[in-house]
């Protein structure tokens, strides 16, 4: 039950190790106090899975981490989706 400090790096490492993520961007939005994070996660594990199942995979992989922090937000992409997004010059904005 040790509450180790959650950091961008620790989340990143956990996702690479536990979800075989090929690319991870984590941002601490709490100004360094380790309370609110947002992430882009790219993994082949997401292929063929709807959004809800992708998020459930991440939630399971980061169960202890998410329980310790205040806010968590993620986008879960397959490598193909990530490539497409990088190539697209259009920003991903809502309608």
């Amino acid at each position: 039950m040790a509450t180790t400090q959650i950091t961008e790096a620790s989340i990143r490492e956990a996702l690479i190790e536990r979800l075989k993520a090929s690319h991870v961007e984590v941002q601490d939005q709490s100004g360094g106090c380790g309370q609110a994070f947002t992430a882009v996660i790219v993994s082949t594990e997401f292929a063929g899975k709807p959004s809800l199942r992708r998020h459930r995979l991440v939630n399971a992989a980061l169960k202890d981490e998410i329980a310790q922090i205040h806010a968590w937000s993620a986008r879960c992409l397959t490598p193909e989706e990530w490539e497409r997004e990088k190539l697209s010059s259009e920003p991903r904005l809502g309608s």
């Binding site: 959004s51 809800l52 998020h55 459930r56 939630n59 169960k63 998410i66 329980a67 806010a71 968590w72 937000s73 993620a74 986008r75 991903r92 904005l93 809502g94 309608s95």
Partner: peptide, 26 residues
Amino acid sequence: DWPTIPQLYVDGEFIGGCDIVISMHQ
């Protein structure tokens, strides 16, 4: 089996949290 709030249900089925609602909106 979802660690964050908010949580949306439609017709008794769990849809997701804020990230999912926003991406489904988009």
